[in-house]
């Protein structure tokens, strides 16, 4: 065997090992969610699922997954929409409108990226409870509805648009709202999709804030509901717990498969440039 051939064989072996490292646990998750208790509690394990879909019904019985789903959907849809609107309006204003020291204001808003969630936790809880929003959708959504990173991505994108087109629309007498809606936003579509999807993923997966701001089982979102399911089922029913985990993970996995390119671009786009 030549050196080049050996190298390729080793590289493929590495690729297969890495593939197994990531597919293995994922397969374990989905197959366990479909295994009968008898197949889970034996060693060595049975690798093929027994298509025991009752695990899902059981998870649903042990914890109000219907409520969790509704709450997660409302919080994600509401939060991501407001985030996207905020990102768009702010980015447009910073790029296309005049205002004294607007770049200073922009940097000040950007500085919010430096504030870690640990510092905001206690005070935001106090603020939200003063507003009477504890255990409400408002309390779940509003504190996360501002957009800094999305605003930044959109602003950078809008700066690359040809200024002439906007200028031409202005000469034609179009107002800013019309220019934004009919000229600028259609050109920003790829970035809008990216910012929107990142907002959806963030809201769906958020953990610590929903944990703090809700205090009844019926108001919990899916990630917190999963914690609750585990505490009621203990370690005695992995099948049902894995079924619950699938219900939390699957929507984002599907979204990822559909919009892989937009997600990777948004999350890594800022990292490397040139």
């Amino acid at each position: 065997m030549t050196a080049a051939r050996l190298r390729r064989v080793l590289l493929y072996a590495g690729l297969v090992a890495v593939g197994l490292l990531f597919i293995g646990p994922l397969y374990w998750l989905f197959s366990s969610a479909l295994k009968e208790p008898g197949d889970i509690y034996q060693f060595p394990p049975r690798w093929l699922p027994s298509w025991h879909v009752e695990n899902f019904a059981e998870a649903w019985r042990a914890a109000p997954f219907g409520d969790f789903f509704v709450n997660s959907l409302i919080v994600t849809a509401g939060g991501a929409t407001i985030k996207l609107v905020n990102a768009t309006l702010t980015a447009y204003a910073f790029v296309f409108l005049r205002f004294p020291y607007k770049n200073v204001i922009f940097l000040v808003m950007l500085g919010a990226l430096m504030v870690p969630n640990n510092v905001t936790l206690i005070v935001n809880y106090i603020t939200v409870s003063n507003l009477g929003w504890v255990n409400t959708y408002l309390g779940l959504i509003v504190p996360s509805a501002g957009s800094v990173f999305g605003m930044f991505l959109l602003r950078q994108y809008m700066l690359t648009l040809p200024g002439d087109i906007v200028e031409a629309a202005r000469v034609d007498g179009a107002g800013h709202l019309r220019i934004m809606w009919q000229v600028v936003l259609p050109m920003c579509k790829p970035m809008l999709v990216t910012v929107g999807i990142i907002a959806i993923v963030d809201m769906w997966n958020d953990f610590i804030w929903p944990l703090i701001v809700t205090n009844t089982v019926e108001m919990r979102t899916l990630p917190i509901g999963l914690l609750y399911l585990r505490s009621t089922e203990g370690y005695s029913n992995w099948g049902a717990i894995m079924a619950g985990t699938v219900m939390v993970a699957l929507p984002m996995l599907i979204l990822f498969l559909v919009a892989q390119r937009q997600i990777t671009r948004g999350l890594t786009g800022g990292a490397v440039k040139g």
Partner: peptide, 13 residues
Amino acid sequence: APHIVSGAAVATL
């Protein structure tokens, strides 16, 4: 893929 799945779900797995 695991990067965009909820940390709570990954940890439970």
